[in-house]
Structures are given as structure tokens and as C-alpha cells.
């Protein structure tokens, strides 16, 4: 029998629906303990992966990329030409960024990123995706009425600005390069990167401020 049989997977899901505990923590525990008991995974490696994405890898990396692109025109050129190569210079290449694309906001263009079919996200530069990015509400509406979504995020956008929504339907992943805020020209890289919010790199934030701390 083929190992790629949709009907069989549907039947397995029906069994799982009936037999798995309802509590998510118990479901994951079931998977983890069976894999550990069977010698398929190593507990310490699991711990290390959790730590890597809790402590080391997160949206601060994306913010560093953005700040560098603002201040170094040659780096920005390399980033726009081949983003995967450019982030490799910084040691940020990794999970889901093998085919990274950078899309740049301008006074006339605003970019937004989504994955309507699953929840594709550039993990190695933005970390784990926020919960809202994975909801049916965001995935369904952002391609149809992006302006109403921006409004919910508190972003007012003029009708004259073109919105470009990037639906990640292949293995390309997208990073939005937000505009550098007015009055930040003299700041150093560290301060600049502290102005970059995670949402601005997905597109649900547009107007970065120079005197508020990062929130989301």
C-alpha cells in the first residue's frame, strides 16, 4: 500500500480524534514520551531546541537586519538581491530562510505577509510566529481586506498607498523592510534596531516611533 494515501491519513485522524486526550499538553506529552521511549528522540536535544527558540533566536535578529539595511547601502543592496546570502553574513541563516525575500516599504507602498494555506514564517530571523499570524481570522481576511486588518492593528493607511500582500504559497519566505523613522539618522545600530517592532517586519505595523520602546 502506498505511504501517501490521503484516505488512510483521514482514517488515522478519526482514530486520533477519538483516542487522544483533549488537553493539548497531554497530547504532546503522549507524542514525546513514545518517541523518547522508542529511542527516536533525545530529551536533551529537545531541551536545546526549546532554548534556542526561546532565548537565542527571535525578532531581534530581524530588527538587526533592518537597522543594518537602513545604515549600510551596500548591505541593503545585497539583502535585496539575495537575502539568504546577506543574512548568512550575520549568522542568521537557518530554519525556513533558505529562500528569503525582502520586500521594501516606501512612502507609496506598504507590504504585508501571510500564509493562507498553512502558516509559513521565516523562523530563523523572526523566531516563532505570533499567535494571531496563525489564526483563521488573519489568514482569511488579510488577502481580501488588508485595510480592515491594519485598522485593527491601529495602523491608519492612506488610500493613495498601494498595499502589497505576499501570500507565502511556496518555500520563499518574506521579510518586510520598514521605513526608517524620521529623526533617527544619527542613531547607532543598537538604538535603531530597538525601534523595529516584530509586527513591522510582517507588515501589521508601519509607522515606527523613535521614542517608544518595542512592544510587539
Amino acid at each position: 500500500m502506498s505511504k501517501f494515501d490521503s484516505k488512510r491519513i483521514t482514517e488515522i485522524h478519526q482514530h486520533l480524534h477519538t483516542h487522544l486526550p483533549s488537553d493539548s499538553a497531554l497530547r504532546v506529552k503522549t507524542l514525546e514520551s513514545l518517541l523518547v521511549e522508542k529511542g527516536l528522540v533525545n530529551g536533551e536535544t529537545i531541551d536545546a531546541w526549546v532554548e534556542l527558540y526561546s532565548e537565542v533566536i527571535g525578532p531581534k535578529r530581524g530588527a538587526e537586519i533592518v537597522a543594518l539595511a537602513w545604515t549600510d547601502p551596500e548591505f541593503k543592496q545585497r539583502l535585496m538581491n539575495n537575502a539568504s546570502l546577506a543574512i548568512d553574513e550575520l549568522g542568521f541563516l537557518g530554519t525556513a530562510t533558505g529562500h528569503l525575500q525582502v520586500v521594501e516599504n516606501t512612502p507609496l507602498v506598504h507590504n504585508l505577509v501571510v500564509c493562507t494555506l498553512c502558516s509559513c514564517y521565516p523562523f530563523s530571523i523572526l523566531g516563532i510566529a505570533p499567535a494571531w499570524y496563525k489564526t483563521a481570522a488573519y489568514r482569511s481576511r488579510i488577502v481580501r481586506n488588508p485595510r480592515s486588518v491594519l485598522e485593527e492593528f491601529g495602523v491608519e493607511i492612506d488610500d493613495s498607498i498601494e498595499i502589497r500582500v505576499w501570500d507565502s504559497t511556496a518555500e520563499l519566505r518574506y521579510l518586510v523592510l520598514p521605513q526608517q523613522p524620521e529623526g533617527s539618522k544619527s542613531m547607532d545600530l543598537k538604538l535603531l534596531s530597538s525601534l523595529v517592532t516584530r509586527n513591522s517586519m510582517i507588515g501589521t505595523d508601519r509607522f515606527l516611533k523613535i521614542n517608544t520602546r518595542r512592544k510587539s
Partner: peptide, 13 residues
Amino acid sequence: DLGGKEGFGPIEV
């Protein structure tokens, strides 16, 4: 396949 489907309500921002 959720793109454009309606009725999911507000986004938890």
C-alpha cells in the same frame, strides 16, 4: 484553504 473566507471575526492583536 482560508484565503478570502469570511466570518472569523476580529483578530486578537
